[in-house]
Simulated assay, not measured.
Amino acid sequence: MRIHCLHTAESNIAVFNAAAAQINVPAEVITHHVRSDLLDACEKAGGLTDEICQLTADYLLALSQDADSVVLTCSTLGAAAERAALNSTVPILRVDKALAETALAQGKEIAVLYAVETTRGPTEHLFSQQEGYAQANVRFEWVAGAWDMFKAGNGAGYLQQIAASADKAYEAGADIVVLAQASMAGAAELTQFGTPLTSPICGLRAAVSA
């Protein structure tokens, strides 16, 4: 099996390697690729434009030529995976789709946390398309200031702030807390009142079974 992962942050390589180890996926089957410029372009444009979507889709299709599955790990770029999949002979997956499906299957009071503002639109749209959305109370919560910490290199502070927001969501009545971005996954180990769902584990499970 060969799985290609496309990231927009170098630090997500370690995040996905750790997730692979947790679910017993051999590290050697995963190849990582990083295109931080794609997320940078989205932030400058205020969201995912058609041009950026097509650039990402083309890159995903190129990766699919020697893979059994391709995983896009950036929620902001998620629609590009769906576009690329239309022309691919192998599965091209967005990790947040598996995340949304898992969350809606497990809970009714769901808090979805995100750090990058451009993530909200694609993530909210994705959740709304999944079975069970109408029966659940899904709220989307921005962890203000966290992404600035991440970009400044303060990874520990970034994860601590997300974990604190997750605990507040649990205290407010959420039975499921979702960490919408792959870079947030480490915060799941820092919470006190529950264990949030993360996209690396959900997404890799989907890639293995695709």
Rank of each mutant, 00 (worst) to 15 (best):
M1Q: 13
H4N: 08
C5T: 03
H7I: 04
E10T: 14
I13P: 12
I13T: 13
A14G: 13
A18T: 14
A21W: 04
I23R: 09
P26K: 07
A27R: 13
V29L: 06
I30D: 05
H33D: 15
S36L: 09
D37H: 11
E43D: 03
G47N: 03
G47D: 01
L48Q: 00
I52E: 03
Q54H: 02
Q65L: 03
D66T: 15
A67N: 05
D68L: 07
S69W: 00
V71Q: 08
T73G: 10
T73S: 11
S75G: 14
T76W: 09
A81Q: 05
R83L: 12
R83A: 14
A84N: 07
A85V: 09
A85S: 15
T89G: 12
P91V: 09
I92M: 10
I92C: 13
L93Q: 11
R94I: 00
R94V: 05
K97E: 15
K97S: 13
A98E: 02
L99H: 06
A100Q: 10
E101I: 06
T102V: 06
A103Q: 02
L104V: 04
G107H: 05
I110A: 01
L113P: 04
L113W: 01
R120H: 09
R120E: 05
G121I: 06
P122N: 15
E124N: 13
E124P: 07
A134K: 15
A136W: 02
A136H: 04
A136S: 10
A136Y: 04
N137V: 13
N137Y: 07
N137K: 12
N137F: 08
N137E: 08
V138T: 02
R139C: 06
F140V: 02
F140S: 10
F140C: 06
A146T: 05
G153D: 14
A156N: 09
Y158I: 09
L159H: 02
Q161K: 13
I162M: 13
A163C: 10
A163G: 06
A166K: 02
D167T: 03
K168V: 10
A172Q: 06
G173T: 06
L179R: 11
L179G: 01
A180M: 05
M184R: 06
G186Q: 00
L190C: 01
L190P: 02
L190V: 04
L197N: 03
L197I: 01
G203L: 10
G203V: 06
R205Q: 15
A207V: 14
V208H: 03
S209Q: 15
S209L: 11
